[in-house]
Nucleic acid binder design. Structure first.
Lengths: 133, 133
DNA sequence: GTGCTAATTGAAAAAGTTTTTCAGTTGCCA
DNA sequence: TGGCAACTGAAAAACTTTTTCAATTAGCAC
């Protein structure tokens, strides 16, 4: 991630690296406030403004994804596999990506039926992971 | 919708009916503030608090669905077909539900692969409707 | 109809979240 | 090592959402 940031012309500040590390290590979705707390554990003095800015940046670059289920809407989860979609556990709130081969077909079918051209999509499943069952 | 509200033990106040009518007539997703403006066109003096409360209520009863794409997260769209999923047009912001037969299979497949039990899901496509293309 | 009661309402306040502003700091390239 | 654009944090502003509370009202029983 750091290398990619660099490649896209962004500076590698300690604040940014702290946020990146928090997200890389997270297995749950985190709100900006939770990201702040954890980032401060790595480097004290990180500001909330910077967390918001860094989340925006990482989101633009595709490293994190906004997660939407469960009432709240403003949580982020790291993207582990490109083009995957995700499962959210209602027990431990962990987020797991999964590859979904069948979706392309579903998109095409829907496009045919409705006449829409589909540009992007959001697919989230919510349930219980094996450990929480 | 009014009949269902009644059946679930809720009162049919003019404020509630105004919000219900706004949502029933909407073909786009609306923020609480937009719902307020339109509801005031039907009955002046509706309060924002009431709009929030009514949206919660209708959401619980399954008459409206929270829509999440496009940056913002706090918009509602009326549910036209039960158990449908939706397409959002990037041009005119209209929301169209579609039945998705293929999804059940995809859920089962994902459950098998990951060991999760899937309780609920959210599927949104974003693109351009025939008129906007 | 009339009266009762619990549900509902709107305004205001409080709480919470996100964005903007700005002066100061700092990573990175030459 | 110096210069400068990018970046930062604090504070303020802007917004959104929830809570509180006294007043109102829909719907039921009579």
């Amino acid at each position: 991630m750091a290398a990619e940031l660099r490649a896209n012309g962004h500076k590698l500040t300690p604040q940014r690296l702290a946020v990146v590390r928090v997200l890389r290590e997270a297995t749950e979705h985190l709100t900006p406030l939770q990201v702040l707390e954890r980032a401060r554990g790595i480097r004290s003095g990180v500001g909330l403004t910077t967390v918001y800015r860094t989340l925006d940046l990482l989101s633009e670059l595709g490293f994190v994804r906004r997660v939407h289920l469960g009432g709240g809407c403003q949580a982020y989860a790291p993207v582990r596999q490109r083009a995957g979609h995700h499962l959210v556990c209602q027990g431990c709130h962990h987020v797991v990506d999964f590859p979904c081969a069948g979706l392309t077909e579903l998109i095409e079918q829907t496009a045919r039926q409705t006449g829409f051209t589909v540009a992007s999509h959001l697919l989230e499943f919510e349930g219980l992971c094996p450990a929480c069952q």
